[in-house]
Nucleic acid binder design. Structure first.
Lengths: 348, 348
DNA sequence: GAGGTCATTGTGAGCGCTAACAATTCATGG
DNA sequence: CCATGAATTGTTAGCGCTCACAATGACCTC
């Protein structure tokens, strides 16, 4: 940039250089059809020469559109939230929107409220809330919000428009798979009580067992972490030989802990106990043994969420309902099946 | 919100309701001291009643500050980038800035250029580029940028201001640890050629061996994925019994693949071969066996990067140099040591 | 009680842009 | 050759806010 002036050039500066009015510059920038080719070229040359860029604030002020969306999330270093975040940004960018993110350590009424305020100060036109904890959803419903909000991962039983992977179905797929493989009963290590997705997975597991005429055992509970899975795994190891042959773990990270605990207890997977997870994190194919799990289509979650939010922002009637469910997919690997496929050629 | 008017209320509306001038409202919002308590309260009541929020565009237009920073990153679902992103946003928010992110699938001149344009249209005051590929750094250096840019993960040999974890030191810590544990030689599975961090880790490993008077073997190369680690692990297994007793793998995910390949080849870790990784992803403590690795302090990376960028934006002379290096930390676990600590009580 | 100071409040301008409208140019047909 | 209308360009008025400055009034000092 050769022109290092204190103030960046304005449209009027460009207009002066090109010998036209500022409005003509605006028209060139806005791809308005009624500009003579010769004029357009002259303006473009001036823009290039001065390194001119439109002032987004001035533009936003008069158009009343910032073309910015907000996202509130927590635990963004986990695979699920990170993937959702990525998909959201990509989908928003495809629609010409910028995404501002607020990543919280904890989702509470206070932090959520501050996050929405912060995004509001930044002028977002709408917000996606990745709010898998029930408490967060309640907080969200209560907060007064000056823009539309779409929730992701809250489950479908909320009054806020939401997009979800069908956790219930995912749990049914896993549990059904284990029953079909000949297991009489399927144990369950659930996620944190406050998480809707954890609850939905538990409900799906229980329903599948009950429909098969099996009395569901008492589920254990973890906090999604490998460590909590390890502790639960030590407990589960005590039940081997007393009817325990299969465990549905509510996420892959805890499943990793369970696998380690079983291994240390001398329990073989899958010969003695089959283990299945949920999420299909990239590592799960390389666990010992490779993990059967449920894959969620985050990319679709992203595009559907953004589409729904833009409908809301632009006052369109959302196409269809405001509660969108996305089907997950079962990925069968060695942890539930006495057969070791080569990596990269595993089913799914 | 009970007041569902078409136009949101303006400062003038609030002023009218409170019986003051718009300027007084502005003063109340800006915490200006010279406002009578009684007046301040009246204005605040009016703000509350109307659900008024300052228009950020109008504000930004006149102050010439959008208080928004941009971040460009790729592979944001990986632990490292995701952690950096999280730390950056948190640090920026603490300084009152909003963060807009662009997550790329691939970093090339084109995608990087588009990303910077997109952020520029959004009015960011500066950008952090998480650009670990060398090609990206070159692209970054060439692009004309209307705002300051700070690079993260590019290594220190660039003309752009940058913040980095000292990869070289990390590699030295691991390699030195393995030598100290009695291994004669340390093999190496490197990351992708184009990544500066991968190169730095390789250089650190090689230097440590050479200083110990050991001829470094030819390093293998992977692409960070567990699968590439698995393939390399199969090759490494062939060298067991021919002098291979220790491997430094350039990241934890590949180390996971190596562990699996060794296990499948009947090689025990750490009894036959010690394996160390890099990154300390949350899962690595629960690998089979728990993985010795190098922890990077992403939180510090975040705060230092933001501080540096804000210095640049606000025209302050950056405190100290513009090339910031952060020390990593060795985390020793069972994969390099014939001792199984309980999870949660492992060193580090 | 005139003059000065300070705290408090109000007034006017203008940030850089787009939208609406006005003005100009140019081609075309009777 | 001028009326007609379309294409092109210019002019004006804000968008909602902050900044600089002006005005008001309370309180003090001599």
């Amino acid at each position: 940039m050769t022109h290092s002036q204190l103030r960046p050039p304005t449209m009027a500066d460009v207009a002066r250089l090109a010998g036209v009015s500022h409005q003509t510059v605006s028209r060139v920038l806005g791809d308005h059809p009624n500009v003579r080719d010769e004029t357009r070229a002259r303006v473009q040359r001036a823009i290039e020469e001065m390194g001119y860029r439109r002032n987004s604030s001035a533009r936003a002020l008069v158009t009343r559109r910032t073309r910015t969306l907000g996202v509130v999330a927590s635990n963004t270093t986990l695979y699920g939230p990170a993937s959702t975040l990525f998909a959201l940004e990509e989908a928003a960018r495809a629609e010409g929107y910028l995404v501002s993110t607020v990543s919280l350590r904890k989702l509470t009424v206070e932090t959520l409220s501050e996050a929405l305020d912060h995004l509001s100060e930044g002028g977002v036109e709408g917000v996606i809330a990745i709010a898998p904890q029930r408490s967060a959803v309640e907080a969200l419903a209560e907060l007064r919000r000056p823009f539309p909000v779409v929730a992701v991962g809250t489950g479908s039983g909320v009054e806020i428009p939401s997009v979800n992977v069908d956790q219930h179905l995912g749990a049914r797929l896993v549990t059904g798979h284990l029953l079909a493989a000949g297991h009489r009963k399927v144990w369950h290590l659930a996620g944190p009580e406050d998480w809707q997705e954890a609850a939905d997975r538990t409900v799906g597991w229980r329903a599948t067992l009950e429909e098969a005429g099996v009395e569901p055992p008492m589920p254990l509970r973890g906090d999604w972490s490998p460590l909590s899975g390890y502790r639960a795994g030590q407990e589960l190891a005590g039940w081997v030989g007393r009817g325990l042959t299969a465990v549905f773990v509510a996420n892959d990270q805890m499943a990793l802990g369970v696998l380690r605990a079983l291994r240390e207890a001398g329990v073989r997977t899958p010969q003695d106990v089959a283990v299945a997870g949920f999420d299909d994190i990239p590592e799960s194919e390389f666990f010992a043994p490779p993990l059967t799990t449920v894959r969620q289509d985050f990319s679709t979650v992203g595009t559907r969420s953004i589409a729904l939010l833009l409908d809301l922002i632009e006052g369109r009637t959302p196409s269809g309902t405001s509660q969108i469910a996305i089907e997950p997919q079962l990925v069968v690997r060695a942890s539930t099946f006495p057969y070791h496929p080569q990596p990269g050629t595993a089913p799914g």
